[in-house]
Design a protein around this nucleic acid. Structure first.
Length: 418
RNA sequence: GUGGGUAUAGCUCAGCCGGUAGAGCGCUGGAUUGUGGUUCCAGAUGUCGUGGGUUCAAAUCCCACUACCCACCCCA
């Protein structure tokens, strides 16, 4: 038997209904903020991610699906989509289009990690980018929007974490300070942290080993190292969020794993997701476009939602929603009735009624199926009914049955759907 | 890359100290001719993850492998 490859999976009904719901909500919300969809390729030149995401990140250094094309070009299945969107922005000179570029996307990403709960090798992200403004008001609006998406999906009990990682200059001063402070105590830290002190001191802040916590707690906060412009920016973001009554927790130890982030970073966590409890992450990336070759500065901010994890949370919160529903299950009796039924079904479907027809089997079987598929009504169509012009309409929940004319039938069905 | 757990019917699982398989749910058919849900009856489906070993005899004991899950790492 051929099975789906490790870390990939089939999204079957009824789970696929939840996926559709989540995507519908996201589209509606983002359209109301005047975002438009962008669809970029699923693979790109490898160098895009190396330069965009950062050569030293785990994503680039050990998790990418990279392959050589027949002409020798190195291509990579996208591990995230911000780099691709910015590439497209530069390539198509979207900086020349008036106003901000507000773009959203949804689709599969690929990272070769060991799969576990909430983590797959092919996973799906719903994300958005705003390019062309440094304003902290944009940061707040982006955060407001993503919270709105989660809420409208029916989620609650999530927590918004907020931080500023400063800019090139002030972060460099902070990292230097961290290195110095950690140098003295490194031998008391866990094995991983001893390595991180060398490779990426910021990661020490994120360590989960209990024994390391006292040392980490004593380390200075990046927020005390922000330069004046970064400090003002962060204060403004918080003020704008406060204006909206959006709850958040400032978490100076929140570290993001992509090199391009600067200033505002944020994350939303949700319980009952297992160890991978991060539903979405995002932040500002003012220098990214230029590092990818843009002549014009193109400051931006964006987020991406882990759709697999969001769906998981929604299923957890509302296990009974997203049921399969059939409005009308038609049970034709015989060939003549079947021909009559198909014409009737076509008309009803054109008016938005969800109709199923029992193409074979006896009446008993048809009603059994109507029951199993959760149909609201069953319609019995036999020669008697065609002759008299009155169908037998059965309410599957109550068991009541009435003889209805064609007009009465549409009245009942359209009444439910309009 | 590292660690732990689990592998028996479509699904969830039982099968103690070895004697070649069961339950519930689901599925199919039936309880008379055009009426579902409840109930009753009947039925189908398993190379007991794979390979090897011990034994008269292995789903059960031993070894190896593989797959899946969870966790570390990292991130969405």
């Amino acid at each position: 038997m051929i099975r789906a490859v490790k870390g990939t999976r089939d999204i079957l009904p009824p789970a696929s209904r939840v996926w559709n719901h989540v995507e519908d909500v996201a589209r509606r919300v983002m359209q109301s903020y005047h975002y438009s969809e962008i669809r970029t390729p699923i693979f790109e030149e490898t160098s895009l991610f190396a330069r965009g995401v950062g050569e030293e990140t785990d994503i680039v250094s050990k998790e990418m699906y990279t392959f050589e094309d027949r002409d020798g070009a190195s291509l990579t299945l996208r591990p995230e989509n911000t780099a691709g969107v910015i590439r497209s922005f530069i390539e198509h000179r979207l900086d020349q289009v008036p106003g901000l570029q507000k773009l959203y996307y949804m689709g599969p990403m690929f990272r070769r990690e060991r799969p576990q709960k909430g983590r797959y090798r092919q996973f799906s992200q719903i994300g958005a980018e705003v390019i062309g403004s440094e304003s902290p008001a944009v940061d707040a609006e982006v955060i407001e929007m993503v919270i709105e998406i989660l809420t409208r999906c029916g989620l609650d009990g999530f927590q918004l974490l907020l931080n500023s990682v400063g800019c090139k200059e002030c972060r460099a001063r902070y990292v230097a300070e961290l290195r110095e402070r950690l140098a003295g105590v490194a031998n008391r830290l866990c094995h991983d942290c001893q390595r991180r002190v060398q490779t990426n001191p910021l990661r020490v802040l994120d360590c989960k080993i209990p024994e390391d916590q006292p040392i980490i707690d004593a380390l200075p906060s990046i927020l005390d190292f922000l330069c004046e412009p970064c400090g003002i920016h962060f204060a403004a973001v918080r003020a704008y969020l406060n204006d909206r009554g959006i709850q958040y927790e400032v978490k100076p130890r929140l570290v993001r794993g992509l090199d391009y982030y600067m200033r505002t970073t944020f994350e939303v966590v949700h319980g009952a997701l297992g160890a991978q409890n991060s539903v979405l992450g995002g932040g500002r990336y003012d220098g990214l476009a230029q590092s990818l070759g843009s002549k014009a500065p193109a400051p931006g901010i964006g987020f991406s939602i882990g759709e697999d994890r969001l769906v998981m949370s929604v299923e957890e919160a509302h296990p009974d929603r997203h049921k399969d529903t059939v409005d009308l299950f038609i049970a034709p009796m015989g060939g003549n009735a079947l021909r009559h039924s198909t014409v009737l079904a076509r008309e009803l479907r054109r008016n938005g009624v969800c109709v199923e027809i029992a193409f074979e089997g006896k009446l008993k079987r048809a009603l059994e199926l109507a029951n199993k598929t959760g149909a609201r009504y069953a319609l019995i169509v036999g020669d008697n009914e065609i002759q008299s012009g009155a169908y037998a309409l059965k309410n599957m929940a109550t068991g009541e049955q009435e003889n209805v004319s064609r007009e009465r039938l549409t009245e009942v069905l359209y009444g439910r759907n309009h």
